[in-house]
Simulated assay, not measured.
Amino acid sequence: DDSKFSEAITVLLTWIERGEVNRRSANQFYSMVQSANSHVRRLMNEKAAHEQEMEQAKESFKNALTGILTQFEQIVAVFNASTRQKAWDHFSKAQRKNIDIWRKHSEELRNAHSEQLMGIRREEEMEMSDDDSGDNPSKKLRVDDSALAAQAYALKEENDSLRWQLDAYRNEVELLKQEKGQLFRTEESLTKDQQLQFLQQTMQGMQQQLLSIQEELNNKKSELEQAKEEQTHTQAMLKVLQEQLKNAKELAEINGHDESQANVGNFNTLCAFVFNTGIISTFLHVHPFGANIEYLWSYMQQLDSRISANEIEMLLMRLPRMFKQEFTGVGATLEKRWKFCAFEGIKTI
């Protein structure tokens, strides 16, 4: 048993060194030494088996390395195709930089694995050509140097990989900064658009307010023009009344002093007639829809308390070209109203 061999060989060595071998035990010790010699052959067989396993492991490693190298070649081919102008123009600046970094990194790894595979093949050729056992120390030295070189190269690859990853992260950070700047500019432009929209809405409101003010101003102008027309009509009517009064005075002066004394009462009556006519005409002119006798009488009472409603109605009936009577309403609401129509009579004439 391999687990107990070391302990047994140690005990055997101790016994022999202490001088336990004598004539009686010599045969027994010889059997044990013979067993140790048999174990030597067993160890050599195990060594051969391990060497065979090592060769198989080397072959498996070489095959795996060949497969890895093939995949590296395919990846490098993909990067080379991406750097062609047909696809290269569609990538952004940061994306191109990352692709270029990845391509260089993959090419370096591919070259490293290719060199490692070539080194393994050279070692196999040297082992096959080297049949002299005296060269084993130099072979071992070459193996050690190759292992150290492989470790150094592995460290170099790891360092390069970390450096490429750092560059890629930096490029991604720059890309994120650019995207953040674009987002900030987009938000700023959106804020400006909102401000512009608010100003446009304010201007529209002010324009509508200005239009309403202009419309109100036009209404006021039309009302002012209407008032001016009414004032002009009133002035014209007063001029007519003044001319009638002047003519009446001239007629009284022509008839002589005696006749004037006889007709003083008639003249006073005429003056009252003209005065009342002017007042009623002015009142009805400012009431274009007319007024009834009671309304006229209540107004005239404030100027002449002696006048009656019948006198007012008789005066209106004596001047059909200046005043006309209209009926409004139906049934119980029937009402007689008087309107001023002197200007209509003038137009008719």
Rank of each mutant, 00 (worst) to 15 (best):
residue 257 H to G: 11
residue 231 Q to N: 10
residue 243 E to C: 05
residue 245 L to C: 03
residue 250 E to R: 00
residue 200 Q to E: 07
residue 252 A to E: 06
residue 220 K to T: 11
residue 259 E to W: 15
residue 251 L to K: 10
residue 254 I to R: 04
residue 238 L to V: 07
residue 255 N to W: 13
residue 204 Q to A: 11
residue 233 H to W: 00
residue 221 K to D: 14
residue 222 S to T: 12
residue 246 K to E: 07
residue 212 S to V: 05
residue 248 A to H: 02
residue 230 E to R: 13
residue 258 D to K: 09
residue 223 E to F: 05
residue 251 L to C: 09
residue 255 N to R: 14
residue 244 Q to N: 05
residue 240 V to W: 04
residue 236 A to P: 00
residue 233 H to P: 01
residue 226 Q to D: 10
residue 256 G to K: 01
residue 206 M to I: 11
residue 233 H to R: 09
residue 242 Q to S: 14
residue 240 V to S: 02
residue 213 I to D: 15
residue 259 E to G: 07
residue 210 L to N: 05
residue 239 K to H: 00
residue 259 E to L: 14
residue 246 K to V: 05
residue 210 L to W: 13
residue 256 G to C: 03
residue 247 N to M: 08
residue 247 N to G: 02
residue 251 L to D: 15
residue 210 L to V: 11
residue 235 Q to E: 08
residue 226 Q to H: 04
residue 249 K to M: 12
residue 213 I to T: 11
residue 232 T to N: 10
residue 230 E to G: 06
residue 217 L to M: 10
residue 219 N to P: 02
residue 225 E to D: 07
residue 229 E to W: 01
residue 200 Q to N: 08
residue 243 E to Q: 04
residue 260 S to P: 01
residue 218 N to M: 07
residue 221 K to A: 12
residue 243 E to H: 00
residue 202 T to C: 09
residue 230 E to Y: 06
residue 212 S to M: 06
residue 251 L to S: 12
residue 261 Q to E: 12
residue 232 T to G: 00
residue 245 L to N: 01
residue 237 M to K: 01
residue 213 I to V: 11
residue 223 E to Q: 12
residue 226 Q to Y: 03
residue 200 Q to M: 09
residue 232 T to E: 06
residue 205 G to M: 07
residue 254 I to P: 01
residue 234 T to F: 00
residue 212 S to E: 14
residue 257 H to Q: 06
